[in-house]
Design a protein around this nucleic acid. Structure first.
Lengths: 336, 336
DNA sequence: GATTTTACTGTAATCGATTACATTTAAGAA
DNA sequence: TTCTTAAATGTAATCGATTACAGTAAAATC
């Protein structure tokens, strides 16, 4: 390994001069600069990043905790984080937790041992182990989409899930639907409660029911959509519109509805949530709520970056705009 | 920041003893161990990862270069890498290059400056900047799916793309198709050549043509699939079967074919490549080649891990098995 | 030409943990 | 009890870069 000492010897100067030549060349005479650069090139020298980092105490890295790497929606968020991080010279460590708290604790621990400077949580759980909770008090941490549970409030970049769900509900109600169902996602999350509350509020205003037997699901997956439809279609009365709590669920739902010989949207309208790329290209194209995932990721890093600098935030909660994307998976209730 | 010195003072021992207590407790008396652990807990001490790493010269991290984070196929690979890495105590840094060589150089540089110990390339380009090429000679680097161009041969985990394409071609030929088209991916890659060669070899054996005007595409995206179909359908003679070089392209192609009022597979059969999750749930479900993406990721890390230990490999090329997945997007050529 | 100021470079301390080597303490043998 | 040996602990060097401080040389001022 070529280190700074070797270069300094080669150039016939001190290590300090080598370091200065590379970090603040204006402090060094043109001639010595020349000599040093020559030696650097000759030795093939690259400053050891680890060494610089111990000195500065900063790793210029962050870790992103993802419950599920296969969800394309998370990917867009991560893409935004990555882009913003890269622009500020940070690197992004990937923490695929698979919803396993042990793995979450492990990844979150990185911020306590200076392996990373900050943490972005895409799940809703408090990621630190109970015994680390106290240490984690003032750690730079922000969440995206989900709010982190617990007394301490951490910054969050989110969507107005309540309003977005209301928009979806209004959309379906305006088509004349009266028999609704929902295939929900992970029940422990804030998102679940807000989206359901949004739907419920509109239906209540319209005096429309959403009985318990019209609720299915429990995870954000294609499989949940399939199982959800199977369960719903066993009921004596068939819904004419199904709220799916994300696009993956909706894709599974549409697939299964067609498999039962029913048509979307003529027999059952389906709406999703997230607007993942493929949603526009399935048959029928999916009506959904567009979340600005990429921007949410970018913004999350920017907020985290403020915290990592030790500054404080003016706002602890940022709400980004959604957009209702009307496509062909939803339509008027059929004549029968 | 609580460091080892503070803990040693608190426990009334030397820093060496604290370090030993944590790294090799058997070297320490039960009573001192007790004292030290007490102090560790009281101080909320966590060893500074950066400091340990400078000493050991190892960062226990790797970087994965991804040309395109939004491709779900890459995600599965990354998931496999991540899992294997985590099991061995490594962390995974994400390098979203977007095909931009400047970003690639930057991320690849991490391995030269000890920021990471190894590199996994998911693209086919040699990721180092020209001036770094010499330094990069003996760097631990492996590629997945694609082979890295250049004289120096780096280990690669791949599929027998030639054979897989032949399987797809046989599948379509056996259905009686005679007018073929292909919507290809990135033309500069090895994969492109191998897949095309596989298809061509079968068609030649059957004395079937694949004229230049029946080739479209140029990137691995849904949009390329759409544009490809538009281009192909402008030709005087319509193909009855289209090879799409990945599932994203196929999804776009099917979407566009239907938009033209044609049916899949009755009018045109479509086959993909990769078997991403959603391919099984679109309409019609896609015939494709399943790549064991997750295992490829795992294996890539394992191979890299050998290189990072400084050992040498018995095989420089590993070929994992593919599987032809026959679904409903392909079928017999229609009667007309 | 003498003196002050400025610019450049070198010496050595520092970041925080690890570990070779030295030293002390305890255990075991005679 | 005394001596030998093994175990436990401490001291200080080390990893590689950065930087406060000191020192030297050159430029500017009178």
């Amino acid at each position: 390994m070529t280190n700074i000492k070797k270069v300094s010897e080669l150039a016939g100067v001190s290590t300090a001069t080598v370091s200065r030549t590379l970090k603040s060349p204006e402090q060094v005479t043109a001639t010595t600069r020349e000599k040093v650069m020559q030696a650097v090139k000759q030795a093939g020298y690259r400053p050891n990043w680890l060494a610089s980092s111990v000195k500065s105490g900063k790793s210029n890295s962050i870790v992103v905790l993802v419950p599920n790497l296969t969800n394309p929606f998370f990917l867009r968020i991560i893409g935004g984080i990555e882009q913003a991080a890269q622009e500020k010279g940070y690197s992004v460590l990937l923490g695929d937790t698979q919803g396993d708290s042990k793995r979450e604790h492990e990844y979150a621990g990185m911020v306590l041992s200076n392996r990373v400077d900050g943490l972005i949580q895409l799940d809703h759980s408090f990621p630190f182990a109970p015994q680390d909770a106290e240490l984690a008090e003032n750690v730079p941490m922000v969440s995206v989409c989900e709010r982190i549970v617990g007394e301490r409030k951490y910054p969050v970049i989110e969507l107005d899930n309540y309003a977005a769900s209301r928009a979806l509900a209004h959309h379906l109600v305006s088509y004349g639907h009266r028999r609704f169902a929902a295939i929900v996602g992970q029940i422990s999350s804030q998102i679940y409660r807000e989206r359901l509350a949004g739907i419920r509020s509109v239906l209540q205003e319209e005096n429309l029911p959403l009985p318990d037997e019209m609720l299915a699901g429990g995870s954000y997956s294609i499989e949940a959509g399939i199982a959800g439809v199977q369960q719903l279609l066993k009921q004596p009365i068939r819904p004419t519109a199904i709220f799916c709590f994300n696009d993956d669920i909706a894709i599974g739902a549409i697939h299964e509805i067609k498999k039962h010989g029913l048509r979307v949207p003529q027999d059952i309208s389906v709406v999703g949530f997230d607007n993942i790329k493929v949603s526009a290209f399935i048959d029928p194209p999916l009506t959904t709520v567009d979340q600005p995932a990429y921007d949410m990721g970018r913004r999350a890093f920017e907020v985290l970056s403020v915290l990592m600098r030790g500054e404080s935030l003016t706002r602890i909660r940022e709400i980004l705009p959604f957009q209702l994307v009307e496509r062909q998976s939803s339509g008027p209730v059929s004549a029968d």
